[in-house]
Design a protein around this nucleic acid. Structure first.
Length: 321
DNA sequence: CCAAGTCAAGTCAGA
DNA sequence: TCTGACTTGACTTGG
């Protein structure tokens, strides 16, 4: 069994390289005219896009082939104040360059719209805003030339609204209402408070969409379910996909602050999961969520060489013997 | 230059 | 019905 490692959004090892620079609404409001606002937005977006390209080149140098884009690439993209700005057209060349690089190097990129995007909401306004946010993500992928077969958006199920069954049903009903261009991109992840891996697996099977397993979330929120009982079924949801099943992995910050992410990845715990998964003959990609981002990835990578049954193929790819 | 306070958005618990 | 926590990097402003 082989697995690859990836990380989220930002590298700690390049100077001044945030892809998530932004500008606040109040600052924009203080800039009186439209021209000044647009100038500011362009400047920030342009830097974010350039930094994303720098990060991808850096990733290539370290053989890191799994990466999550920031959702903040275009500042305030879906805010009413910015409506009408055709950022995709404006940065067409730069975005296409990113997409071409991704395809040339067969990098697995994704995005994770944040928790304000709620498909199973009761509120038409929240649903509408969520669609706008998803459209923004889709726009970016399209401008990059990255198709909906390979390149996905990871979402959570949403809120419980005091009735889990009804909330799951509403997720499915609302999912079906989404434009195909959005629905085709969506894959679901279990969360740390509301919807367990078994809940999400059920939804994914019904909707025939892949499920991202978050191991840490599972330990936060599981209703007594055992991972070993579900792993094969979870991987099965990826049967029709181009990429292998994706798993999120992070280490709890502390016993007291269990749900937060630690700085690094605990190699021992990581190997426990990998060993349990290795019984299934299925290669996977593991997205690491640690405060130390790619530094945590490289640290884990070094530590994994200490395990006798692990063969390191390169910095971010391994085989279990 | 540094530190403290703030940030577009949703949901939930608790007041 | 309303407020703060959640979580988090980066912006903004005050010193």
């Amino acid at each position: 069994m082989r697995f690859r490692l990836g990380y989220v959004a930002m590298t700690l090892n390049l100077e001044d390289c945030s892809p998530s620079g932004t500008v606040t609404v109040s600052t924009l409001e203080k800039l009186g005219d439209e021209k000044a606002r647009l100038y500011r937005l362009r400047k920030v977006a342009s830097k974010n896009i350039a930094n994303t390209m720098r990060i991808l080149r850096y990733n290539k140098a370290y053989n890191i082939k799994v990466y999550r884009f920031t959702s903040k690439l275009i500042p305030l993209a879906t805010h009413p104040m910015v409506r009408g700005w055709n950022y995709a057209e404006e940065f067409k060349k730069e975005l296409k360059e990113i997409g071409d690089f991704v395809k040339e190097n067969d990098i697995r990129v994704s995005a994770h719209p944040d928790h304000y995007t709620v498909i199973n909401t009761n509120s038409p306004k929240v649903f509408n805003d969520s669609v706008l946010d998803l459209e923004y993500h889709v726009e970016i992928f399209k401008a990059m030339g990255l198709d909906d077969y390979k390149y996905k958006l990871v979402l959570h199920t949403g809120g419980l609204y005091k009735d889990k069954i009804a909330s799951i049903e509403r997720f499915k009903e609302n999912f079906i209402k989404l434009p195909k261009s959005i629905a085709n991109r969506i894959i679901l992840e279990n969360d740390d408070k509301s919807f367990t891996a078994a809940d999400v697996l059920g939804i994914c099977k019904d909707l025939k969409i892949p499920m991202v397993l978050d191991v840490h979330h599972h330990y936060c929120n599981n209703g007594g379910e055992q991972l070993d009982d579900m792993l094969e079924d979870i991987f099965e949801t990826w049967q029709q996909e181009y990429f292998n099943p994706k798993v999120h992995f992070s280490t709890p910050k502390s016993e007291k602050d269990y749900r937060s992410h630690a700085d690094d990845i605990n190699a021992e715990e990581f190997m426990k999961f990998i060993s349990s998964a290795s019984y299934i003959n299925q290669d996977i990609d593991v997205m690491l969520e640690a405060k130390n981002k790619d530094s945590a990835l490289l640290k884990l990578s070094d530590e994994l060489t200490g395990y006798g049954n692990v063969k390191r193929i390169n910095e971010a790819e391994f085989e279990i013997l």
